[in-house]
Structures are given as structure tokens and as C-alpha cells.
Design a protein around this nucleic acid. Structure first.
Length: 273
DNA sequence: CGGGCGGCCTGGAGGC
DNA sequence: TGCCTCCAGGCCGCCC
């Protein structure tokens, strides 16, 4: 579900709902997420005030008073919403944060690929989840020149390169697929054989597709919503992702599906070379 | 050390 | 209706 745009949309929608509230009590119904939620998590989070929300890669960072940051990753099926404290528990609601103002922040995650942990704010960048992450694609330093530099002496398909979080963060299967279509590069193309000019177009396409998706509230294929439960609209803009057999909106060619690194790729064989 | 692949989970869709 | 297979937005660890 969540790539960078979805996490960013979530962050923006949650910020006004959460900032300034105090975590009064935490309930963990299921500890077995991608990593086990440690005993003591509830006690360590309780009593802290929510100071602000940030995002790094696909991680949502909720800064708390007392120098702690609540780190949440949604995996494939996670959903984080704010509801009234009395609202009935939904299926797979593994974590519930009861907040001041009679509200509750809840994490639902059927597949349990998500993550929730508490990290000292000052040590975030050294935490093993963050230490090896690459550049933020919406940051000024992200450019075709940077991509070309990092790609030096690398091999393999450009799509795998784009989805490698050590290179650039936040780009998952949907947006890698769509960005490659926008800049007319075939996903199987070797990264070692991309010209400097094509790296520039690729970087521009990545930035453009992410920004547009954020503006549209993210992509809701199945169940993504923002913190208020609102779905996104970018799925209607998807040119090739999930559309095998349909005509390419640019040239009319027939969209193909292939598998790369165990993931579906979609591309137009006529205009992506 | 870089890259490929299976595994982790549950649920929805589609075929028969 | 029910059963089966396939597939899914991510990431990690193991293997070569």
C-alpha cells in the first residue's frame, strides 16, 4: 500500500489531529508484527506528548516529549487512523494509542508486515532501520547527476535500482513502474547502460510522479486511507501499473506485464525503450 | 559485495 | 456455494 506519497499524505493528515495531544494509555493486542513489539513499549510511550510528525523514506516518525520518537512503518497492509476513543475496534487493530481529547490512534495491519518501535530521537539516524537509507527523492540534492554517480559500477535492471532503498528512498513498485513509463525507459534496461541525459529524465519523472501523487491524496488500490480515513485518487492516473493488455495512454501500444525480482512490472513495449 | 529469491502474513479476486 | 490458486503497495536474510 504505502510508498512515499501515501506516507506523506498520512503524515500531513495526522499532524493537525495529533500535535499537542498526550498519549494517555497504549494497548497492544498483537505483538507479532514484522518485529515483535517489545514488552515495555506501552509504558515507555504512555504519558508523552506528541510534538510533531516527520517522514523518512516510508517511515512515519512521531516525535514525542522526553526525547523519544515513535517509528511506524505500514508494510503492505497497514493503516493508521484517528477515531473517537469509543469507536468499535476494527479487525486486525493491533495497536491503540488512547490520546487526550477522547481520541484514539489505531494501527490496523492484516498482514503484519508493519512495524512500531520507540527510538531515542537523537539516535534515529544511527538506528539500523535508517542507517543505510539513500537520498530523499523530494530533497534538493536528488538529481540525475546523483543517480548517475550512485549507479556507477552497478549492474542490473533500472527498476530494481529505483526500488533499492539504499539508493533513493520511498519509491516502491507502483511509482517505480509509473516513473519509468513517464520517462520512456524500459524497466529491464540495465542501469549500467543509461546515458546521463536519461538519468536526468528519470530523476525528473520520479520527482514529478511522487509530487503529483501526493497532490492527489496517494494511490488507493485496495485500502489505503489518510489519517481521517479518506481514500486517495491517484489510482485513476496510473498509466501502466496494473493495466496489462490495456492501451498505452501515450502511444496506444499494448501494456505488458513481466516479473522482475519477484515483483510485477508493467510497461509499454512501443514507447519504453 | 551486489543481486536474486524465498519467506513472512492475511485477504481478495478469479477460475472451475 | 465452495475450494483452489494466484496475487498484493515492503523488507530481510540467505544464497550464489
Amino acid at each position: 500500500m504505502p510508498e512515499l506519497p501515501e506516507v506523506e499524505v498520512l503524515r500531513r493528515s495526522l499532524e493537525p489531529l495529533l500535535r499537542g495531544r498526550t498519549i494517555r494509555r497504549v494497548e497492544v493486542r498483537e505483538r507479532r508484527l514484522r518485529e515483535r513489539v517489545p514488552r515495555g513499549f506501552e509504558a515507555a510511550a504512555a504519558g508523552r506528548r506528541i510534538e510533531g510528525l516527520r517522514r523518512r523514506a516510508k517511515y512515519l516518525l512521531i516525535d514525542l516529549s522526553g526525547g523519544a520518537t515513535l517509528v511506524i512503518h505500514l508494510g503492505m497492509s497497514g493503516r493508521l487512523t484517528v477515531v473517537g476513543e469509543q469507536v468499535e475496534r476494527e479487525p486486525h487493530e493491533h495497536l491503540a494509542f488512547y490520546l487526550s481529547g477522547r481520541t484514539r490512534l489505531r494501527l490496523r495491519d492484516p498482514r503484519r508486515f508493519g512495524l512500531a518501535l520507540l527510538v531515542p530521537t537523537a539516535l534515529l539516524e544511527r538506528d539500523r532501520h535508517f542507517a543505510a537509507l539513500g537520498v530523499e527523492p523530494l530533497a534538493d540534492e536528488f538529481s540525475g547527476e546523483l543517480l548517475a554517480r550512485v549507479a556507477h559500477r552497478r549492474r542490473g535492471p533500472v527498476k530494481n535500482f529505483l526500488m533499492d532503498q539504499r539508493i533513493v528512498v520511498g519509491v516502491g513498485n507502483i511509482y517505480a513502474t509509473e516513473a519509468l513509463h513517464r520517462c520512456e525507459i524500459r524497466p529491464t534496461r540495465s542501469v549500467a547502460r543509461l546515458s546521463r541525459e536519461r538519468f536526468e529524465r528519470l530523476a525528473a519523472a520520479v520527482r514529478e510522479v511522487l509530487e503529483q501523487a501526493i497532490g492527489e491524496g496517494g494511490t488507493t488500490l485496495n485500502d489505503f486511507t489518510d489519517g481521517r480515513g479518506e481514500a486517495g485518487y491517484f489510482q485513476v492516473e496510473l498509466a501502466v501499473y496494473g493495466r496489462p493488455g490495456e492501451p498505452c495512454p501515450r502511444c496506444g501500444g499494448t501494456i505488458r506485464r513481466i516479473v522482475q525480482a519477484g515483483r510485477s512490472s508493467f510497461y509499454c513495449p512501443d514507447c519504453q525503450r
